[in-house]
């Protein structure tokens, strides 16, 4: 697949959205609990996604490349919400343990990166198989180390 600069900019923008979402959701959690806040956020998110589908369904009818398609997907592909929601519940345990917020974040990142290295290498979940190179590990090291510094700098403040 061709590399497009917009894909990388979208990824960075996605990370920015994630940070803002976490900030809002943890403020909401401060008034209730992490799980209740996540429950509310998932409900609002579902309604939002449904609204977007309704709008795009009418808007994109005349486009050559439709935004909404109805090809078949394996059944497991519909279950992304389960591990995502379970992660919220588990985070509530680890954040309130000696690991704290920073430790939980750092270890979670490590888990994410290791699992992603495996998915790319073995081509899991329909991804294109891609051999890992030294270059991958250098990039992982740089961005991973930078993130750890930011996570623990917030802690030390």
């Amino acid at each position: 697949m061709k590399v497009h600069a917009t894909d990388f900019m979208l990824a960075i923008a996605g990370g920015a959205l994630l940070a803002i979402m976490i900030s809002f959701n943890s403020q909401l959690a401060g008034f209730s609990s992490p799980m209740t806040a996540s429950w509310v956020a998932h409900g609002i998110g579902a309604v939002t996604a449904l609204g977007l589908i309704a709008i795009l369904g009418t808007v994109s009818k005349h486009r050559k490349k439709p935004v909404l398609t109805t090809a078949k997907a394996p059944r497991w592909a519909y279950l992304g919400g389960l591990p995502g929601a379970a992660a919220v519940a588990i985070a509530a345990i680890t954040v309130n343990s000696p690991l704290g917020l920073s430790g939980s974040l750092a270890l979670g990142l490590l888990g994410q990166i290791l699992f992603s290295l495996a998915t790319d290498k073995f081509g899991w979940f329909g991804l294109k198989k891609r051999p890992l190179t030294v270059h991958d590990f250098v990039v992982v090291g740089l961005i991973g180390a930078g993130s750890m510094l930011l996570i623990f700098a917030g802690d030390a403040a």
Partner: peptide, 13 residues
């Protein structure tokens, strides 16, 4: 997968 995680992470951090 790897580049998605890393670029999203960078933007998030």
């Amino acid at each position: 997968a790897v580049k998605s995680v890393l670029f999203v992470l960078g933007g998030q951090m």
